[in-house]
């Protein structure tokens, strides 16, 4: 049971450092420039625009592979975040970017299907994932990405994942 009187700064630093450990441990996320905004347990992935993300220089438009990678990264982080939340809050684990052994093992992608709805503009993109079902072994995650308007998605995806076994 959560301690109602736990100091707020301690709660925030525990959650932020765990999230940072999850993200900064993966070189590819850093290379793409992906970061996560956190509101309580809700995560929003942010992909700041960069020239190297362009796939069609004429339009210009984001590379479809970048969009797919952004969605997949968001799904994996959300799934790991949801899976570790209880252990994190109860103090059973304390992931720390500086201690590789403390980092949770990540789910493995089984399959990932991306539905491209609009071409990605040369601006920042955002994504949010929802764990539809998470069992002991397998999980199904849905994820959506947008740019200027939350209701005008640029892409959505569904993926199946193999959960790390204890």
């Amino acid at each position: 049971m959560a301690d109602r009187n736990e100091p707020l700064d301690r709660i925030k630093s525990r959650r932020d450092s765990a999230l940072n450990a999850l993200v900064s441990g993966v070189p590819y996320m850093t290379w793409l420039g992906i970061r996560f905004d956190r509101r309580g347990d809700e995560l929003t992935a942010v992909l700041p625009f960069d020239g190297k993300l362009i796939g069609n220089p004429v339009l210009p438009a984001l590379h479809g592979g970048v969009t797919a990678a952004f969605l997949e990264v968001t799904a994996i982080v959300e799934l790991s975040w949801v899976a570790m939340w209880e252990d994190l809050e109860s103090g059973r684990i304390a992931p720390d970017a500086a201690v590789p052994e403390s980092l949770p093992r990540l789910p493995k992608t089984i399959d990932f299907t991306v539905d491209y709805l609009r071409s990605g503009l040369p601006r920042d993109a955002y994504a949010r994932a929802r764990v539809v079902r998470s069992g002991r072994r397998y999980a199904s995650v849905h994820v959506e990405a947008w740019q200027d308007n939350r209701s005008r998605l640029i892409a959505q995806a569904t993926g199946h994942f193999l959960m790390p076994q204890p």
């Binding site: 441990g25 993966v26 070189p27 590819y28 850093t30 290379w31 793409l32 590379h63 479809g64 592979g65 970048v66 797919a68 990678a69 952004f70 997949e72 990264v73 590789p100 093992r105 990540l106 992608t109 990932f112 991306v114």
Partner: peptide, 18 residues
């Protein structure tokens, strides 16, 4: 810089997608 799992050095699935 394309690694998705630093424990094993395996490239990220997103790179394979691209």
């Amino acid at each position: 810089h394309l690694v998705g799992d630093p424990r094993t050095g395996v490239i990220h699935g997103g790179v394979v997608s691209a």
